[in-house]
Design a protein around this nucleic acid. Structure first.
Lengths: 157, 157
DNA sequence: GGACAATATGGGATATCATGGGATATTTTG
DNA sequence: CAAAATATCCCATGATATCCCATATTGTCC
C-alpha cells in the first residue's frame, strides 16, 4: 500500500501546472494510468488524491452499497467531481480552474501526505487547519487502535 | 520488534546532517526504505522516530478509524508533519529546518531510545523533562502491564 | 598502553528536483 | 474545413539534496 508523508509547497505556474513532489510520485503504485485522481473533500476546501488503483477499489465499494440510497447518491458526487490528472514528463500535473477554485489555490499549493492518500491545500488554509488540529491533539490526546481488520470506507459505519 | 535503548548526543552540522547512533541503525528492521521516519510528539517539543515498516502499520491502523471523524482528521496531521529521512552512506540523516525548529535543536541533538521507538530532543530540554519525570516517579510509582497488552499511543504517556 | 576498528564529523562534487519557456499536436469552435 | 484555444511534449536552468571521500575521535582488544 502507498504511504504518503510530509508536506511540500510547490508553485502553480501560468498554465496551471504544478510539480507533484518526487516522493509522492515514487509512493504511487504502478498503474497503466500514469497520474493521479483528485477529488473534493467533503469537510474541507481541499482536494484528496490517490492513484487510480485506489479509485477503482473505491468504485467497487460503491457498488456494494444499496443502489439509489441517499449515501449512494452522495458518494456518486465524489466520482463525478473527481478528475484524473496525468503526469507530464517532468512529474507535473495540471490543476484545472475548477479544482483550483474549489481549494482556493492561486500561486502555490501544499501537498499534504496523510498516510494512504495525500491532499492538496491552499498553503495558508492548511496552516490554519494544522494549527487547530495540533492544538487539539496537544490538549486532547487520542490513540491509534491496535493493528486492524480492514475497514469498509464511505459506508458511514 | 525493534528495541532502542540508551541516550546518545550527537552534533548537527551546517547542512543539518547528524549521525544516527550505530546501535539504533542496527536495531531498525530491514526495509526497502533505508532510513527512518520522524514525526512530532503531541505533548512535547521533540520528535519520535521509527522504521518505515512501523509507520506503514500506523497508516493501516489509521485506516481502521472512522474516515470522517475528527480524531481521524487530527491524526492525519501526524502523517503530514512526519518526514522520511534517508540514511546517507555514513549513517547520517538530514534534519529539516522545520523539524529542528519544532524540537528547538541547534547544535546538538539527543537520541533517546524509548523501547520500540526512539526520540530526538534538544539536549537541555531532555534533561529538564527527565528531571520532571524522575521527580514524579519518585512520588507516584507506576507499573508495566503484563506482556500482551502494550498498546501504541498517539500521545506521550 | 598501543594498535586497530568502528563511529562520528567535515567538505566538495554530482545528480535530482522544481521551475520556466516554447514548440507542436489535438481539440474545440465558428 | 479552417482558425483559435488548449493540452501535451520537449528542453534548459538554478537550487538543493544526495553521494562520495577524507579525517578525527572514541571504543575495544591484545
Amino acid at each position: 500500500m502507498a504511504l504518503f508523508l510530509s508536506t511540500y509547497v510547490n508553485k502553480v505556474d501560468r498554465k496551471g501546472r504544478i510539480s507533484v513532489p518526487a516522493p509522492f510520485r515514487s509512493a504511487l503504485p504502478e498503474h497503466a494510468f500514469n497520474g493521479i485522481v483528485a477529488y473534493r473533500l467533503f469537510k474541507y476546501d481541499a482536494l484528496e488524491c490517490c492513484g487510480m488503483g485506489r479509485m477503482e477499489a473505491m468504485a467497487r465499494r460503491l457498488e456494494s452499497l444499496e443502489q439509489f440510497s441517499q449515501e449512494y447518491d452522495d458518494l456518486q458526487t465524489l466520482f463525478s467531481d473527481a478528475e484524473q490528472l496525468t503526469f507530464d514528463g517532468e512529474g507535473r500535473i495540471v490543476l484545472s480552474e475548477a479544482l483550483r477554485e474549489f481549494a482556493g489555490i492561486t500561486e502555490s499549493a501544499a501537498f499534504v501526505g496523510v498516510g494512504s492518500t495525500f491532499q492538496i491545500w491552499e498553503p495558508t488554509a492548511l496552516e490554519t487547519s494544522k494549527k487547530v488540529k495540533r492544538d487539539r491533539l496537544r490538549h486532547n490526546p487520542v490513540s491509534l487502535p491496535p493493528e486492524p481488520q480492514l475497514a469498509i470506507r464511505g459506508s458511514g459505519e
